[in-house]
Design a protein around this nucleic acid. Structure first.
Lengths: 210, 210, 210, 210
DNA sequence: CATGAATGAGTGTTCATTCAT
DNA sequence: TATGAATGAACACTCATTCAT
């Protein structure tokens, strides 16, 4: 079986240039292919074909199939996280930050469908059992976690353990994202977003309901 | 690649008796194995070993590995859905029904860890792309969907498309379930459940937040 | 690299019958092939072809290429040792025993050229460095070793360490064998054998030369 | 498979100088590596690494891996033969010459363990079948062959075909060498050498035994 | 001369599936 | 109905060799 995303550590950056170009081309071929045939159906031969390099060439850039998948995951994940975090510092309050973060996530995912799908496929491998992505991958989710812990400290959020709040946020976000992926027109619908914001606020915020 | 849960149709029931017994033994062997080695790491040889039948025998009961996985999924899923739906008819109101349903789901998952994990592994395969389990698997989720549509009709739920509400419910429920799988003591914590209920109500209920 | 003949332990015997037949057919295909292309040039695909079985079938009988080679070695080696040891018990004296043993070895090798060559190829892998077949494979050579130690105890042999005498015996024997493999007519030449016997006796026997 | 030492021809000498230096560095890297990983486990990449040249550079000095191994063999073999032959002309009589030659061989092999091992590994490849190093490599063994033919002509040696005597000499010498490689202290043991000399004389000399 | 990225044929091995018994 | 030996396509990975720079 393909291994999980074990250490949760982003690899050191590789220089750009020719070497980087081919590396990226291979990663993109892997991402495209995996989106069609799945993570385990991914064959090195097909990746090589799509990247228009020889099979052996793959092993100049990645030590194994697992390594290629891990590197491809981090390639997508870092881009995603960067896009999601953009501009968050300028926003005050945990809830507004989270609301904006969801918009960022949706925008990126709609513009990068394959990378997004690939990232989700990789993440899905780590949440079958009792552990969750939020818990065992906290490095990846650290920005959301930081916001939530901050919000808890300041009394802005519902009194639930931070991992629960984090997972709830990703769960609700996933619901919105899935819907928008097949109904992109709702992206411009202010009423839709009003309700989504209200839902998140009602779930995560320190509000009481009668 | 192992195929998704394509048709969303529960297979016709098979008679009990000898035939049914061996069928179930094989399914349970598949579930146990998959929980240890993953869905793609599952080998027919190991399933046959664990079920104490010959490899060829598997093909008397299932036409292929994919079919075995699908059937095993339905085996778990139907049991899960039945447990989740139990007693819901006696409850009035969409939200109370959903709150109870979550309790039912958590109780079943904690008592049937392997079946639950197996079911989640199978479901994960169908929600990578733009489609969601809620949409393409509506048969499986029909009971939740019915509750939600009913609640929307009666004005009890937030004005969002029913698939969004459905996914939100499963997303929040997943967050709670994941947490309880590793922190079962919270199961008895009334405060915890108060907050969870409030969160779900705040997210899905027709409430406004300031 | 192909591993040496590591443990020096003959494997437990396998039952005859259908299973044994195919096992032997594969071993013989491996032996024939290796004699033509060498031990490392041996490919499982070619062995399967020659044995007229599918590639996968090889792995029903042998866990790996290395295992196949080891098993094939033991198959040849045991046959060889048995042929060499035949009738030795009836002969008194270490030197007469060794002289007869050489005749036995030559007769077997001439009648089983490929098995003999294969066995020698395998043995060659363990004597490159400081260690010798005689030392690290004493199980295989135990019959010669026993004769030599016996002869030393009884004062029939030259006062050299038994491994030296053993290697000398195999060295001289190899010289004779190599010659006879390309000059089989000498097999019937009594003068040739008289000289060979005298040479072995002069080398290994407790004789002094002026 | 790596080819045998086919033509038995020492290659023409290459000039010293820069070209020669790098050539020698590569050969030595190949010898060292092969002693650790075996002849077929030898990889051009590792040789290049150890010789601190680029992989492509190897092909400026050697047309192929086989060629490199052959050239490396000759490099070791010529050094070995030269050391073995040193001072032999001053000795009268075939047997004394051969006894001294063995001492020379042992001394060189103990002082040049890797080169010696490498040479033996290469030679092992040519003596599996019916042919022997002595026969198809007569160029390499010509000095021993000359001594033996001379000794036969002069009636000093046992009446056996010269290839048999030659192989016997190498066989006995190998036995002594293997022993000394792991028991170097015997090198200084006069009794040991007395017995070895007596053994060789008894085997190869024109002596009769009763 | 020297490089090292690129190649691609070849390797050993696995495993879902079949079918004669 | 049940078996399990046999299959063979598919796989990840290696490495001697080439060639543009």
């Amino acid at each position: 079986m393909i291994q999980g995303l074990d250490n949760g550590q982003a690899p050191e950056k590789v220089d750009a240039g020719d070497r980087g170009d081919k590396r990226i081309a291979i990663i993109e071929a892997a991402v495209n292919t995996a989106c069609q045939v799945g993570l385990e159906g991914l064959s090195m031969a097909e990746v090589a074909d799509r990247a228009k390099v020889a099979k052996g060439t793959l092993y100049l850039y990645f030590t194994s199939k697992d390594q290629l998948i891990q590197d491809a995951f981090w390639h997508c994940h870092e881009e995603n996280v960067a896009a999601c975090d953009k501009g968050l510092d300028a926003i005050a309050g945990a809830l507004p930050k989270l609301l904006q973060r969801l918009r960022n996530a949706v925008n990126w995912a709609l513009r990068n469908r394959e990378k997004g799908q690939f990232e989700r496929m990789c993440l899905a491998k780590s949440q079958y059992g009792a552990t969750t992505r939020y818990q065992n991958q906290h490095l990846q989710f650290k920005s959301v976690d930081r916001i939530i812990r901050d919000g808890l400290d300041k009394g802005e959020l519902r009194l639930l353990p931070s991992p629960v709040l984090g997972e709830m946020f990703f769960g609700i976000g996933g619901a919105v994202l899935y819907y928008l992926l097949s109904n992109p027109e709702a992206l411009e619908d202010e009423c839709f977003w009003d309700q989504v914001d209200a839902g998140i606020t009602g779930c995560l915020g320190r509000v009481s309901v009668d």
